[in-house]
Structure formats: structure tokens, C-alpha cells
Design a protein around this nucleic acid. Sequence first.
DNA 1: TCTTATTAGACAGAGTCTCTGTCTAATATG
DNA 2: CATATTAGACAGAGACTCTGTCTAATAAGA
Lengths: 147, 147
Amino acid sequence: MTDSRQEPGLAVLLFIANRALEQRATDAVAAAGYTDITLAQARIAARIGPGGTRVSELAAQARVTKQSAAFLVEQLETAGYVERVPDPSDGRARLVRLTERSAGMAEAANAEVDRVLGEWAEHVGADRLAVVHDVLRDLREITDPWR
Amino acid sequence: MTDSRQEPGLAVLLFIANRALEQRATDAVAAAGYTDITLAQARIAARIGPGGTRVSELAAQARVTKQSAAFLVEQLETAGYVERVPDPSDGRARLVRLTERSAGMAEAANAEVDRVLGEWAEHVGADRLAVVHDVLRDLREITDPWR
DNA sequence: TCTTATTAGACAGAGTCTCTGTCTAATATG
DNA sequence: CATATTAGACAGAGACTCTGTCTAATAAGA
């Protein structure tokens, strides 16, 4: 989205880092035996909170439309990774929750992410990586309309 | 790809920042009148170098298969944003080059990216943002198999 | 309370993107 | 010169995402 080759801009660098991490996590999940889940589904699943999350919320977090999120949740439900329960606080809403089956998958993903972050810290220094983390967190205030 | 809500991990933060920048650039391009280009096409177009780039190279940079990249290049060619010429150095290859028509589009995208980065620098400090840029650049050595 | 506006989600359909698999031509390798 | 590799084309299937529309539940105001 920047311009052309040569020294890559921040836009490209963000893309590369994001994709690298995503790829490692995806590969790890597949290696752990969870081969019936796609990247798009995983992006949704990864954003489900402990107490369950609404489809609208998942859509916002994953930057897709409600329809797309609902479609992916449906797939995840069929595969047994999530379940939908009524939201006690709102009769219109339903909460999407992770099932026990997804526990191992989540663990595999998280373990790999930690491993990758360890490698990154070793390569660029834990302190510098921490700055990246802090800055991106601060940046979220202006880049993330939802919360 | 991390786990669930609460303090977002680096994986989610990278995703958010990347998407935010991508969205702003995309909106700016559309606002500039280039409504016949999609996000996937733009991701490919943004990676075409001054002297032209091979489809295989574009595929690697955009993290998609050769087939996907070829498909998108085909769309871009039909729309008049790129052209394909034989690669003098390799009879098998063809170089994808930007046409004059894409100049205004690239300018609109780059201008918006610069604008966003300016906002970011203002929000978190130019020095801290510079650290992020440096770290991600260093990280590329281990996250980007292609160069 | 009653009317109206908003919000969560379901449903339908079309378009876009991406992948696996296979094939040809051109280039390296030994 | 035979073989392996690489760039790209072609075909087809599958996955993802969107616009548009609809119902039900909640929120807001007269």
C-alpha cells in the first residue's frame, strides 16, 4: 500500500511481521493436529473472550462484516470449536464461546506465539521489542475505533 | 491468533495497526476516484518496483501463491493499471510494470500513508515511532525469507 | 405507555480471492 | 546432452467477503 520496493516503509513492515507471526501460529496449530480450521476461522476464534463474545464484536475486532463473522462462527460451530448461547443481558444477542475442543488448539497457538516472540526478543533485544509493544498499544487509541 | 480479550498481545496489535493503515490508504485511493481497484489488487500493485517485478516475486512479497498473484495481476492489467513485458534477463519471466494510470493512485496512497504516520508520530512521539520502524526492519531478517 | 430509532443477528445471493494440481517453456546443472 | 529447477499459464474447486433485506429485541422520547 506504500509505494515500490527499496527500503520498505512501516506499512510493509507491519504487514510482514503480522503475517510471519500469523503463519507460525497457523502452522503450529496444524502441526498439533488441528487441520480442520482455516486462517479466517482462526482469526475469529482468537478473539473470543473467556466469557464469550458477540458476533458483532468479533466482526469489529477482526475487521470484517457481521455477515462474514457470522459465516465463520457457523463453520467453527459445526466443527465443534465454539458454541452459541443466549446473552443474558440482551435478548437479541448470542454469545459465542469456545468449547473444550478448542482448548488444545488455543494452547498450541499461544505456545507458538510465545516462542516466536522469544526469538524476536533475542534478535532485536527484549527492551526494544517491549517498546514496539508499548507504542502499538498506545497507537490503538487512535487506530482502533472499537475500545 | 493469540488468546482471548484482555490486554491485547503483540500479534493482535500488529494486526490492528496494519489494518488501520491499510484501511486509511484504501479509503484515500477510493476518495481520489480510483474505485475500480480492490484491496487484494492494491496489495499486489503496492509491491511493484520501479523497473517492474515478476509475478513470482509479487506473490512472495504479498504472501499469496503464484496463481493468486497472477490472477490479481490479470485484473490490474485489464483495468489498465499495469502492463506485462518480457524480462530481458530471463526468457521464461515477464515483468509487471505500473502504467501511467496508476501514478495518481500511488500518489494518493502514499500521501495518505504519510499523513497517517504523521498522526501516529504526533500521538506516540516521533522518536518512539522511529524505534518501531527500526525494530521491525531488523525483524525482517528473520521474518522475511525472501531477502 | 406508545411510537420511533437503533441494534443484534439471520437469510439470500453474488462477487472476489485463494488454493491444489497440472502443464509448457526456458534456464541451470552435471 | 540428459536432468532438475524455475517462471508462468490454465483449469477447477473451495473459501471468504460483501451488499441488501428481514425479524426480533432494546433504547429513547413524546
